[in-house]
Structures are given as structure tokens and as C-alpha cells.
């Protein structure tokens, strides 16, 4: 190999090395904080959880609700699709579509009218809608102050205090009979105790 060839080859490899270095330098300019992350702004708020955790809880409650009335693969596929829409886009009608789907599945499952699943679904479907509304428009990584659950929790209990007796009244009026009359009462009392505990532990820390 002649000297000229060797020089040409060396020059080519140097050019490739220079090009690679330029690429790296360009990438570094557009992502300047990769080697050492920039510090984050600190916000002093009360106890918090990430929004994605609240979303996960919403999805869990939705799946548990669906499990009461869903039988078969196709119904499960449909209800999981509605849950996915609710979780992916909480700032939309997804939670409403999920509620309607649960209503359809309640009928399709052959459950007797005003049987015990209705009282459970009254609470869980409402809870899915409330949690979905709370996380609507929030970034997944945002910090969700637990004190935010206090006022919606009270409102949830107040609405349930009307809805559960309404269901009982419906059962009496339609003559369906009340198979487990103590269940909604016990559930209501449990929710009251839960909300009171939540209020004591969270309300004082983060409210105001």
C-alpha cells in the first residue's frame, strides 16, 4: 500500500470519527442535563401520592365492579375496553360509558332485580366516576394531595346516603323483596367510619 493510500485511509477514518463526535455533541446540546439531572422545584404540600396511583386504584375498583356481573370472554373484553378508556382519558365520557356498560352487564348476567350486587355496584360505580373526575386533566406524575379526597369523600357519602335507601325503596315498591336488608346499612356505616378516619388523618395535615 502506498503512502498516499495510507494517508487517504487515515483521513477517511479521521473524518468518520469527527462526524461521530459531532453527532454526539449535537445530541448533547439538545439534552444538556443527561449527565447530571437538574434539581426539581420543591413544593411544600401535605401528604401526597402520585396521580398514577389514584388512577390505578380507579382501575382496580372498576375491575372489581365488573367482576361482580361479568361472565364470559366477550363481556370481559368489552368492559376492559371501557375501563381502559376511563383510565387513559379521564377527562371525557369514559366513566359514563363504563357505568352504562355495567348496567347492561347487570341485566345480561341474569341477576334478579334489586339483588345484593346492585347495592355494591351503586357504591363502586359511583366511586369510579368520582375518582376519574378527580384525576381528569392531571398529569400522571403530578403529586396528588391526599387532603383532596376529604371533600369528595364527604360528598360521596352524602350521595350514597340518598342512593342506597332509594334502591331499598325501589325494591319495596317493585315488590322485588329485600334479600339482604342489612347489607346497605352496614356498608353505609362502614363508609362513614372510613371517611371519618380519613378526615382525621388527612384533613388536618393538608387542608389550608
Amino acid at each position: 500500500m502506498s503512502v498516499a493510500d495510507r494517508a487517504r485511509r487515515a483521513s477517511a477514518s479521521a473524518r468518520v470519527a469527527l462526524f461521530a463526535e459531532r453527532l454526539v455533541a449535537t445530541a448533547r446540546i439538545w439534552s444538556p442535563s443527561k449527565s447530571r439531572p437538574l434539581p426539581r422545584v420543591v413544593a411544600d404540600i401535605g401528604p401526597w401520592v402520585p396521580v398514577w396511583l389514584v388512577t390505578a386504584v380507579t382501575a382496580g375498583v372498576a375491575v372489581a365492579s365488573a367482576a361482580i356481573v361479568t361472565r364470559g370472554t366477550v363481556p370481559w373484553a368489552i368492559v376492559l375496553a371501557t375501563i381502559a378508556i376511563t383510565v387513559a382519558q379521564p377527562d371525557g365520557p369514559g366513566a359514563g360509558i363504563f357505568a352504562v356498560t355495567i348496567g347492561v352487564l347487570l341485566v345480561a348476567s341474569g341477576t334478579e332485580p334489586f339483588a345484593w350486587p346492585l347495592y355494591v355496584l351503586l357504591a363502586t360505580v359511583h366511586l369510579v366516576v368520582v375518582l376519574s373526575a378527580l384525576t381528569s386533566g392531571l398529569p400522571r406524575r403530578a403529586r396528588f394531595e391526599l387532603a383532596l379526597l376529604v371533600a369528595p369523600g364527604r360528598r360521596f357519602l352524602a350521595v350514597q346516603a340518598v342512593a342506597q335507601p332509594l334502591a331499598l325503596l325501589g325494591a319495596v315498591v317493585t315488590g322485588a323483596g329485600v334479600t339482604l336488608p342489612w347489607l346497605p346499612v352496614a356498608a353505609g356505616l362502614g363508609l362513614v367510619v372510613l371517611a371519618w378516619r380519613l378526615d382525621v388523618r388527612v384533613g388536618d395535615d393538608g387542608d389550608g
Partner: peptide, 9 residues
């Protein structure tokens, strides 16, 4: 600094 998102009551 990196931003922080907080949802507060």
C-alpha cells in the same frame, strides 16, 4: 430546575 406538578385542595 425541573418543574413540579401538584394537585392541591
Amino acid at each position: 430546575h425541573r418543574t413540579v406538578d401538584v394537585a392541591v385542595a
